[in-house]
Amino acid sequence: MPSRIVTLKLNGAERELIARPSTTLLDALRETFGLTGAKRGCAQGGCGSCTVLLDGRPVVSCLIPVVTVDGSTVDTIEGLADGDRLDDVQQAFVDHFATQCGFCTPGMIMSATALLDRKPDPTRQEVTEAICGNVCRCTGYEPIITAVLAAAEHRRGVPLASAEAEV
């Protein structure tokens, strides 16, 4: 079967690509659109480093032939910041030392974002469950959980640690 034209609403903009049958959503993001935030860690659905939002829900983009999601909305880590201004989850990761080598970070932040979009006031257990598919070899997870809880608080009106420090 020949390649097909696929349309995505990618980080808010209509984008098109020519996709081979074997092109995954992750391939399309990284190789066609140059969005290299989502990483190819395992290509097995096991590490979560390729996590993006598909129609608002977190998915492992390495397991999706992109032709099967033609017309869908896709949001990646690149769509979160407003210019140089990080969004609250990103800022909380910086403030709470929740990123070291950074390989897991884009996937981790997209899983966290999906959680906070659905549950603005998650428990620690809910945060743990939300990121259980995102493997981090560096941080030991605790700073990540702290950051997600802090971002949730910030969304509810409590300032982030960095904002306090600036005062």
Binding site: G45, S111, E129, C132, G133
Partner: peptide
């Protein structure tokens, strides 16, 4: 269901 894999897998 929640014992199966992780949220980004269960969404697929």
């Amino acid at each position: 269901v929640r014992s199966i894999a992780s949220p980004p897998v269960r969404n697929l």
